[in-house]
C-alpha cells in the first residue's frame, strides 16, 4: 500500500508491502531512524516509544497503516545537539544514561508527559513513566524529569517574553 506519514516534520511517501508492519520497523529499517529501539515487540518495555500526533505510542505494536496522514516524532526529531529538547537537556545535565538503549523511549514518554502535565509530581511520574530500564537509571531519571519540567517552563517563559 501507499502511505504518507509526516516524520519529524518531513512528509514521507512510502510503499509498504504489508500494511500491518509495525511502525517501529518502518521507522528503523525503511526510514533508517535507529533511535527508536526494539526491545520486546510486545508493547511491554517501552523502548520503541515515539509520538503519533503528539501522543506517546509504542510503535512495535502500532501497524503502519494507522499512521497514514499523521505526524510521527522520534527521538531524532525531538531535538538535536544544536537545539535540544528540554527533556534531552535535562538528561544531559543529570547524566542519566548508562547503557543507553532504553533511554530514547523514556525521553519520548517523558516529553509526552510534560505536554500533558507540565509540572508532574512524583506520583504523576510513577503512573505515566512505566517503561523498563535494566541498568536501573530510574533514580537519575526522576531528577531529570523534574529538571526537564523546569527547563520547559523557563523556555516557555522566555519564548513568551520574546513575542
Amino acid at each position: 500500500m501507499k502511505i504518507s506519514i509526516t516524520v519529524n516534520g518531513v512528509v514521507k511517501a512510502l510503499e509498504i508491502a504489508d500494511e500491518n508492519t509495525p511502525l517501529l520497523w518502518v521507522i528503523r529499517d525503511t526510514l533508517n531512524l535507529k533511535g527508536t529501539k526494539f526491545g520486546c515487540g510486545k508493547a511491554a518495555c517501552g523502548a520503541c516509544t515515539l509520538h503519533v500526533d503528539g501522543e506517546a505510542v509504542r510503535s512495535c505494536s502500532y501497524p503502519v497503516k494507522f499512521a497514514e496522514g499523521k505526524e510521527v516524532t522520534t527521538i531524532e526529531g525531538l531535538g538535536d545537539r544544536e537545539n535540544p529538547h528540554p527533556v534531552q537537556q535535562a538528561w544531559i545535565d543529570e547524566i542519566v544514561p548508562q547503557c543507553g538503549y532504553c533511554q530514547p523511549g523514556f525521553m519520548m514518554a517523558t516529553a509526552a508527559l510534560l505536554n500533558k502535565v507540565p509540572t508532574p509530581t512524583d506520583e504523576d511520574i510513577d503512573k505515566n513513566i512505566i517503561n523498563v530500564c535494566r541498568c536501573g537509571t530510574y533514580y537519575r531519571m526522576r531528577k531529570a524529569i523534574h529538571k526537564a519540567a523546569e527547563l520547559q517552563a523557563d523556555k516557555v517563559m522566555n519564548e513568551s517574553k520574546t513575542l
Partner: peptide
C-alpha cells in the same frame, strides 16, 4: 566528568548492535 557517550545516547545515535 560527564560520560563521553552521553550525547550519542541522548540524541538517539545508531550506536548499538541492533542498529
Amino acid at each position: 566528568i560527564a560520560r563521553v557517550d552521553l550525547e550519542a545516547k541522548v540524541y538517539g545515535d545508531p550506536i548499538f548492535g541492533m542498529d
